[in-house]
Design a protein around this nucleic acid. Structure first.
Lengths: 249, 249
DNA sequence: CGAATCTTTGAAGGAGATCAACTATAGTGG
DNA sequence: CCACTATAGTTGATCTCCTTCAAAGATTCG
């Protein structure tokens, strides 16, 4: 996807030379740039730079001044908060097309790290603010994405507060599957890019409980696990029943 | 506050006659109308009607088409989602100055009910949308409030996913206290408008556990309970320590 | 191949849920 | 005014499920 880049192992590559034109972008129809007219898109492209992250690399840290905002083009990020004693809550994962900085005013309210090697479009907040003044459609688009993020966060509150462990995992797998489809990946053998610790910290469980829930779903014949990071959904219907909540997919 | 209204026992009163001018409004500086110029404020006032709710009354229901949006002027609302089997997750409470409809596109994503008798400013979505096109400051204000709501929802995810019951309750009481101060109410003897079931469904606990946590905090000398709905915070510092998370108040 | 990391599984313990009873408070009607 | 009822909150006992602690596979990477 980023043909001009040399070695993927280089740290924090950043350059003004955009990684191919926006018109060729794989997430063109989902990201912030969706539903923008050509002039707005070109203006956006003009202030854009690109960036690569490798696994585990931190992009922004909670509390730091918000100087840049990002649009994820490939890979996966986790967004989380840490408690003083080390407990971690992942509030969500960012998929290609998602935007980083929706919730933040002035400072980042959460830390973001790459779960897998990722590529992003990178914007200066000041330039983005200017652009939003010139192109209201851009601001509207961000607002729509923020509302969507809010609904998602509230859905997560339901999952965290009222679902039993197996229900949590079942609903997580269904959301992952729907998400994969949205990005154009296969939605049935779902690939888990994140490890058990990430899943546990997202669902408010321990890794042991997550593992046991996988085993339980497998034993009940609802899923198949060719390997630890691949989940084949054998009965979408039954899995939905376990999740307890019918999700709009 | 609403002098022209007759009996509070009337159901769902609604009338175009605004409940006093916006300039006299108690939440003028916090609600959607904060930071609006006079012309925008008057335009907002022109399309506003008012509404009263009594305890337990439903304002909007999850899934219903979003035709109206609201600004709470007094009272308290709960926002929640129900599971098919009756489990309930309250994602948040709306206090005076808060806006209902931030997260929703087309249909309401959650149900809203009055916890205590409440009064609201009521707007047609269509008229509000028109007004936002004419007054960008209005749209910006809503966007700011949406970002704030998103941060709050993510904070709640941390509470739900990673705090122990006592920690949950302690943090809840601190947030309530800070909220009361913000609205201009006394922040130390905190008055609990909601009952134990509401608190339980907000914190992802049972009412028995909530009650036991109250007792535990009382036994440890951190709070005093003159009656079940009044909490006197004896040691703000210790309570914060129990909450485990330093909240920006 | 061997070290490190990740995942799974087992055993034990504890914390919160459940079930049940009791208390307190408010509202009702005699 | 006072029983009577209904509702809300507290407390106790038990049980279940999740966590914790521990160890054994499995996979990856040098």
């Amino acid at each position: 996807m980023v043909s001009v880049l040399t070695a993927q192992t280089m740290h924090s590559q950043r350059h003004r030379d955009p990684c191919g034109a926006c018109v060729d972008c794989e997430v063109r129809k989902m990201a912030i740039c969706a539903a923008l007219q050509d002039d707005a898109l070109h203006a956006l492209e003009a202030i854009m730079s690109s960036r690569k992250l490798e696994t585990g690399e931190m992009l922004v840290e909670e509390g730091a001044p918000k100087l840049k905002v990002f649009s994820l083009t490939s890979g996966l990020l986790r967004l989380f908060t840490l408690l003083p004693d080390g407990r971690r809550q992942i509030s969500g994962f960012l998929y290609p097309g998602d935007y980083l900085g929706l919730a933040d005013d002035g400072t980042y309210s959460q830390t973001a790290e790459a779960v897998v090697p990722s590529t992003l479009c990178c914007f200066s907040v000041n330039e983005m603010d200017e652009l939003m003044d010139q192109h209201p459609a851009l601001k509207d688009r961000l607002y729509v994405m923020t509302r969507e993020a809010l609904r998602q966060s509230r859905d997560n509150q339901l999952v965290l507060g009222r679902l039993a462990p197996v229900e949590k995992l079942a609903s997580f797998l269904l959301v992952l599957s729907a998400q994969a489809k949205r990005v154009g990946h296969p939605d049935n053998p779902v690939h888990l890019s994140m490890n058990r610790t990430d899943i546990a910290d997202y669902l408010g469980l321990t890794i042991e409980t997550v593992s046991r829930c996988f085993t339980k779903l497998r034993t009940q014949g609802l899923i198949h696990l060719p390997d630890a990071n691949t989940v084949s959904i054998l009965s979408h219907r039954s899995l939905s029943a376990v999740a307890g909540t019918e999700f709009k997919s």
